[in-house]
Design a protein around this nucleic acid. Structure first.
Length: 496
RNA sequence: GGCGCCGUGGCCAAGUGGUAAGGCAGAGGUUUGCAAAACCUCCAUUCACCGGUUCGAAUCCGGUCGGCGCCUCCA
């Protein structure tokens, strides 16, 4: 039984689907005015793993992840850049999609855009006006929070408390147009010379929250099975989404609300507004994107994920220790896979049975994910699995060693599980390992050819039994972070 | 001020009533011409602190201290 923490009820509860075997999932996508940073990366990796789990559990999932391509921030950025808003939005949409694919996230089934749902927005706003949940005021349309009897149910707060807390920050100019200070815009009147859209209430642009109510219900019907997003969207975005949708359709909007925690820097939230962020793509050339993905899975999705980095004397970023640790684990994964591939066929024998560590991975991960998508547990199970594979390979590669076919097949199945359920280990082991190795060597000012030349020199020395010279070469390379591995097939190398 | 979350070994991090997963680092070992990798063994009588409930608590309740988030754009 799949259970996730639900923000609305405040507890971990079983997923309850509207239609048996079918899951309609909506995840709030980005506003495309800049590149995705690590906070976004975490969010969409989390939901990617969640979607994979639903699918692997036999559900037919419709995954909808929107693109908010109409927004004040886009207009502002476009004015700054002198770039057409549409062009800017398209550029960052493409960048976002590319980044998410690089992080191993499967594309959503539907990726709706606000710009393609304006008619739906007009309809829902009109419905809300007709039902008395919204009112027009000087070209703006506001949602009346007082007309929604359970407004505040998601974020567990009541109107009075909210207003007293926000009293110092309300914009008087805007407040005067509203019946209640907590009312929020469904449609905003456009300013002169600013990009806008014609609506029944005049030229302007949609409010921030209405697009998600419209796009989600347009593609998944009035009631969603699960809605996800970052913790910072609980209020006001999701609270308002519920209010709009439920008042418009008269039906429960969503059964299950999932929210992921933040990526933090020095204990503080990573955010564009704070300026303490790294974009995903600026890390891609420093570490394997897969390492970023792995890193995201080392912490429970609801907990904060703190990011550290190191600086040199000039204040340049020199590294990301935790992500580099994650990269070592990804290397271990590929290295283990390569070892398994290297076991000669004739050493694989029909007799013998596979140990539980090899056969139980699928079940272990599945159970971990059933319990509120516990990714750290899944990662722990993977560690145990890889250790067992190495153990089996050790045994197989000894003199007269053998590998039971049952173990071999269980290991192959395990790697397949890691690929499909975690989205890790999907690339070619050799290529990936060499990419990391060469990148690290380059950081030390060494090309693969440089190292190969040293290896050859050492091979010659060894052939002459001149171990002293051979060891000197090894030592010199080792000081530059290059480790040599002597094997039956010759000498290979790696970089740390 | 209101609402909510968190505090587990040197570091990261699971664990919501039954006696502390996993990873990194560290120590010893197997292996190796020497190494590396891999594997094995060891590494928290204890879960911020104080009280309470219980046969039994890291886990439940109350309090103290410390950190964070939301209440305003934000994944």
């Amino acid at each position: 039984m799949i259970r996730f923490h639900d923000t609305l009820s405040g507890e971990k509860k079983p997923l309850s689907l509207k239609v048996e075997g079918e899951a309609g999932v909506y995840v709030c996508g980005p506003t495309v005015y800049d590149y995705a940073h690590l906070g976004h990366a975490r969010c969409y990796v989390v939901y990617d793993v969640l979607i994979r789990h639903l699918r692997e559990s036999g559900l037919n999932v419709k995954y909808v992840r929107n693109i908010t391509d109409i927004d004040d921030k886009i207009l502002k950025r476009s004015a700054e850049n002198g770039e057409e808003p549409t062009a800017l939005a398209e550029r960052f949409t493409a960048a976002f999609q590319e980044d998410m694919r690089i992080l191993g996230c499967a594309d959503p089934d539907v990726e709706p855009k606000v710009s393609e749902h304006l008619e739906g927005i007009f309809e829902m706003v009109q419905t809300l006006i007709d039902k008395g949940h919204a009112y027009e005021s000087d070209g703006d349309v506001y949602f009346s929070v007082e007309s929604c009897k359970d407004y505040g149910k998601l974020s567990h707060r009541d109107l009075e408390q909210m207003l007293s807390g926000a009293s110092g920050r309300l914009d008087e100019n805007q407040t005067s147009r509203k019946k209640n200070a907590a009312d929020f815009a469904l449609w905003k009147k456009g300013k002169e010379g600013v990009e806008g859209w014609d609506s029944p209430w005049g030229r302007g642009r949609p409010g921030w929250h209405i697009e998600c109510s419209v796009m989600s219900t347009a593609h998944l019907g009035p009631t969603l099975d699960l809605h996800g997003g970052g913790l910072d969207l609980v209020f006001p975005h999701h609270e308002n989404e519920i209010a709009q949708a439920e008042c418009a359709t008269g039906q429960p909007f969503c059964d299950h609300w999932v929210h992921n925690g933040f990526v933090q820097v020095d204990g503080e939230k990573m955010a564009k507004s704070v300026g303490n962020f790294f974009t995903a793509r600026e890390l891609f050339h420093r570490v394997l994107p897969e390492a970023i993905r792995f890193f995201m899975m080392t912490v429970h999705y609801r907990s904060p994920l703190n990011l550290d980095w190191t600086l040199d004397d000039e204040g340049n970023v020199t590294g990301f220790p935790q992500i580099e640790e994650a990269e070592k684990r990804v290397e271990y994964l590929y290295q283990t896979r390569r070892r398994l591939n290297a076991v000669p066929e004739k050493r694989i024998i029909d007799s013998g049975i596979a140990p539980r560590e090899l056969t139980g991975l699928e079940k272990g991960i599945s159970e971990a994910f059933d319990d509120d998508l516990n990714m750290p547990i899944a990662v722990a199970r993977v560690s145990e699995f890889l250790k067992a594979v190495n153990e089996a390979c050790d045994a197989a590669m000894k003199k007269k060693g053998k590998l039971p076919k049952a173990s071999y097949e269980a290991a192959l199945a395990g790697f397949a599980t890691i690929e499909t359920r975690l989205g890790l280990g999907t690339a070619d082991p050799e290529t990936t390992l060499n990419t990391v190795r060469d990148r690290r060597a380059a950081a030390r000012g060494l090309t693969p050819a440089d190292v190969e030349a040293q290896i050859e020199a050492r091979a010659n020395a060894r052939a002459e039994k001149n171990f002293e010279q051979a060891d000197e070469i090894r030592k010199a390379l080792s000081e530059k972070g290059i480790e040599l591995h002597d094997g039956p097939e010759g000498t290979t190398w790696s970089a740390v």
